[in-house]
């Protein structure tokens, strides 16, 4: 268990309800860990325990999301299983919910027509979604499978986490390009409020994807390296 002084903003004894109420971004974190709302006045530690979530991992992600950087002190205490669950749920959220929702808003906002560039903006977005999907599916197929095998005690040779680090590209940068394209070149025949709404979502999506990738680089990869070391992998 991490000691409370451990550079973290929040500790296991804090009330779950107060940290969530203070930082609305954490609602996402909580639900991706599979913790439902309605925990009354329970502490973070108790809420995590009741939901079968590793508390140190939960707090590391919380502090990472809030501070934007990772402290390496807690790496060896992280539960790879909980972390992996969190990342999988994040993938599902992006692919099954957030990106399709943005697409719908974008379609309504820019008023799709064939005689201007509106359809190309949607095409750009679809290409982006396709890239994100490929990227995430690749992670699940190789990296996550590898981690699960490790956790099951099957140490397959060949794939190492280093292989993964090298392939990890930032998926969010293309969204910056999309934002610029819309700002600069969107046809003026659009529904301003709906389009603004879509743009806000795209900004938020870009930030969340960036944060998601960094979380993988800054928590998952070091935790994995640590685990590989603990079972005697040569580094």
């Amino acid at each position: 268990m991490t000691t409370p002084s451990n550079s973290s903003r929040y500790t296991p004894a804090d009330k779950m309800a107060s940290i969530i109420a203070d930082h609305y971004q954490l609602i996402q974190v909580m639900s991706r860990f599979g913790i439902p709302l309605g925990f009354g006045d329970d502490s973070i530690e108790k809420t995590c325990r009741d939901n079968g979530v590793d508390c140190t991992t939960f707090l590391s992600v919380v502090n990472f999301v809030l501070d934007g950087f990772a402290s390496y002190q807690t790496i060896s205490d992280l539960s790879l299983k909980s972390l992996l669950h969190y990342l999988r749920q994040s993938h599902i959220y992006f692919l099954e919910y957030f990106l399709p929702a943005i697409r719908r808003k974008l379609l309504d906002g820019i008023r799709l027509r064939s005689d201007n560039v509106s359809f190309l903006i949607i095409k750009f977005f679809d290409e982006f979604v396709h890239e994100v999907r490929t990227h995430m599916e690749h992670e699940e197929k190789y990296l996550f499978t590898y981690v699960n095998a490790l956790l099951d005690g099957k140490y397959s040779a060949g794939y190492k986490v280093n292989t993964y680090s090298e392939h990890h590209e930032k998926v969010g940068s293309k969204l910056k390009e999309l934002i610029k394209l819309i700002i600069k070149y969107c046809p003026d025949d659009n529904d301003t409020n709906l389009l603004n709404d879509a743009l806000y979502d795209i900004y938020r999506c870009e930030e969340e994807l960036e944060s998601h990738c960094r979380l993988e680089d800054c928590l998952l990869v070091p935790a994995l390296l640590n685990f590989e070391k603990s079972i005697g992998f040569k580094v």
Partner: peptide, 20 residues
């Protein structure tokens, strides 16, 4: 700027390998 904080030499080594 992406920041990573490390507290021990071992942390540092792992961090350098994963974060470039």
């Amino acid at each position: 700027v992406n920041i990573m904080e490390v507290k021990t030499l071992e942390n540092l080594r792992d961090c350098v390998r994963s974060a470039k």
